[in-house]
Amino acid sequence: MGKTSNRQVRRIIVSGYYGFNNSGDEAVLKSILNALHAEGEAQGITIEPVVLSADPAWTTRMYGCEAVQRMSPSVLLREIRRCDGLISGGGSLLQDATGWKTIPYYTGVLTLAQMLGKPTFIYSQGVGPVNRGWLFAPIRRVMNKSRYVSVRDAESAALLSRIGVPQERIEVVPDPVMGLPLPEGTQTSAASSASTDALPVIGVSLRHWRKDGVDLERAAAALAALASRRSVRYRFLPFHTPDDTETSQVVIDRLTAIGIGSSIAELAAPGDDPQQMLLEVSRCDMMFGMRLHALIYAANQRVPLIGLSYDPKIDQFLNRLGLTAIGTTEQLDPAQFAASADSLLSDLDGWRSRHGEVIDRLKREAQRPAQQIVALLSQTTKR
């Protein structure tokens, strides 16, 4: 972004789970960068983002912005001293389901910025689950010292309120990815099948969760049950490579062993760019998703969706659309899935009509954190 003599320039660090080849988190980053740039232009401010990344060179190539190593204390200290503020988010950063070290890292980055007198902003985070009580204190401390706090669902807001963050300080907004646009110069019609053989295209996003793999066996049985009712094209979409690629291949092999008649199962390779994955999702007629951002991508593009829950965040997002999960990693009835998916495929336009208004509202509200943060940065005196 170019500088002009009559524009304020604000250098802002963006902290999150970036540079790990996870399409959902990369989509969060892309959405935040887009929104900050758009709001900066609207408010007459040049925003210069600096991303904390596990792979700074890749992040710079992908997004055209400065990126630095997220785990180097000396780099963090240097960059925070140079910045005008720090954004933490979005995604599920403050949770201990994946281990206890996650929360200390992200609260530690926020604490360092606050100790150096830099304003901090929480951008549409999903908070929880937090099963270790000793982690409440650092979360409460950094939240109460942040200039702006936004979370992506009411459950996250309720958890923060229970641990001592005043409710009036918390804004509930959609996930940033609800505002992500398709790649420039592309367009698609969600109302028509992307398949050249006229089979309805069903995007499938699964992840490895249960160690015994029973959840994937259930998912394969459900997909086979639908294929026994009608011919479809299953397009498996790996959101986190290489893990999801391997998981998808396991399920494809299982479907081949079961037999799916004239239906087709294939693995997509949309690459690293989150907008290319969004385009891939937009070309589906329906989405069967376990990954949260697979479901968010689908809603973003008005692609009718069915969710499989492995975490409360799945249920929380579905609830915002007025939906419930078809099953969980502990229970999924193949006949129920097949009947629901068959019914949905027979009334795609009806689904869009029923949920379109909510989706449009979520897309508008997804810009709210960027609007607030840029406005606050414009009031900040450069150090």
Rank of each mutant, 00 (worst) to 15 (best):
M287N: 03
M277V: 15
L321E: 02
I296A: 06
S263L: 08
D311W: 14
R254W: 12
T328D: 04
A269I: 07
S353N: 10
G259A: 06
G307M: 04
Q276T: 15
P270N: 02
I314S: 06
G289F: 06
D315V: 09
R320S: 10
P304A: 01
L323F: 05
Q336F: 04
M277F: 13
S282I: 14
L323Y: 03
F317E: 00
D273V: 14
Q249F: 11
M287V: 12
L323P: 01
R320H: 03
I264D: 10
F288W: 04
D285N: 14
G271W: 07
P270E: 03
P274V: 05
P304Y: 09
D349T: 07
M286K: 02
I314Y: 09
V303A: 06
A341N: 07
E280R: 14
S346T: 13
A265W: 03
V281E: 08
V358I: 14
V303T: 11
E330I: 08
V303K: 03
A299K: 08
L279Q: 14
M287C: 12
A325V: 10
R361H: 12
A335R: 09
Q276E: 14
E266H: 06
D285G: 06
A339S: 15
Q316P: 00
Q275H: 04
L323I: 10
K363Y: 01
I264P: 04
N319C: 08
Q336I: 13
R254Q: 14
D342P: 08
H293M: 08
A257L: 15
T256W: 12
S309E: 09
L279E: 01
L292N: 05
R352P: 10
P334V: 02
G307S: 05
E357C: 09
I260M: 02
L344M: 12
R291N: 08
E266W: 09
R354F: 06
Y297L: 11
I314Q: 07
A269M: 10
